[in-house]
Design a protein around this nucleic acid. Sequence first.
DNA 1: CCCTTTTCACCTAGGTGGTAAGAT
DNA 2: ATCTTACCACCTAGGTGAAAAGGG
Lengths: 233, 233
Amino acid sequence: GWAGEGPGASGKNRRVCHAAARLEMGSLWEEFNRLGTEMIVTKAGRRMFPTFQVKLSGLDPLADYVLLMDFVPLDDKRYRWRWGCWGGGGRILAVLSPPPRRYAFHSSSWLAAGRADPAAPGRVHFHPDSPAKGAQWMRQIVSFDKLKLTNNLLDDNGHIILNSMHRYQPRFHVVFVDPRRDSERFAHQNFKSFSFPETQFMAVTAYQNHRITQLKIASNPFAKGFRDGDPEP
Amino acid sequence: GWAGEGPGASGKNRRVCHAAARLEMGSLWEEFNRLGTEMIVTKAGRRMFPTFQVKLSGLDPLADYVLLMDFVPLDDKRYRWRWGCWGGGGRILAVLSPPPRRYAFHSSSWLAAGRADPAAPGRVHFHPDSPAKGAQWMRQIVSFDKLKLTNNLLDDNGHIILNSMHRYQPRFHVVFVDPRRDSERFAHQNFKSFSFPETQFMAVTAYQNHRITQLKIASNPFAKGFRDGDPEP
DNA sequence: CCCTTTTCACCTAGGTGGTAAGAT
DNA sequence: ATCTTACCACCTAGGTGAAAAGGG
């Protein structure tokens, strides 16, 4: 779908006011979102899957733009995954017959569990092709496949730092590179932001929802080694 | 070594007149050059090995620069590889005992064989990080490892087009991005070029000199599969 | 108990020269 | 005879989730 810009869309520079962004792989994002998207964060940094990709239009072909992303906490809560159990008795049955531990999906879910941890350093990821002309950005799909998520507060690889077990909304920004001398004074007019609700996710260090795991395995080419069933195009 | 700029170094913009470039892996380049460097060209495009890499200095840290390479024919000749043979009789012996065909190195060499073919379209390879600030370019070694050579005159991948069996001199250019309105008028002052004689090579579709092949295998990590002997650090 | 870290087999993606067949 | 092409095994480089170990 097409994301509307936030409040205050008026008063924008004409180089950005007509900018539009269409999320690519929208149906895949929606499929994940229906289950509750989870994104792995690691110390070394982990890519997102699905990858955040957009098709741009409405830019000035001859003007320079910088494209970037950041991640906004969706609330100030910390979450925990609540496993549901088979049969009655729950805990007692699990203790009496330990492995194999079998859990039910339908009764498992995320529960708010207190206030958010202190916010991680608010970093930003510049698309590595930045800056580039509007024509170049609009020529083909813009892919943020170099972006990596980490839970390491001391990360010095320039990755996006997130708190595990917290929810986030990816946000995409188009910034017009203003050649005017005192362009700082117009900074607030020179960018336009896009948020696609279907891309929100829970940051985790290990997947909790098995259906998310299975959908990742089914749709991410790098996880092909874990597919067992027949090939599906 | 440090390559001097060509004639007419005077009258340059001050943003480039102090620019200097040091060739990286100089001893490897010289080792190849002593044997007569050959570079494979293919229809799909082939990387150079060694990779052309330079360390820059003398740029204005705050100014924007574009870095690029092109390839200059070293002469207007076409070459052929002349095999030397073992023992007396040469051709007769080879006919009588076909495989294994054994050739001598010491008597094999490149011979001029007529005038050059029509020059291929003169293309240029922009370093993909261009444009960037002088500080960014000087921060670390600049590597042209994305550059590919092709013999396909109709190539539409933007690769460098060369004639096989012809000799070339790689050339490196530092271009100051002039923000002035009529910057075209100063174009000739805003760049500085570097040629390292030890990087010249013969374009080939298959290696001719076995000693070049062996040095490629010994020094290119991607050819490790063809090494037989002991590991050498 | 719950979450994080480490290591691993198994992939994708793409850079090597060898080899044999093809082209001129 | 000489050069070119297509395909191949074998690498590098790095992205996957599983599993087991580690930590509070």
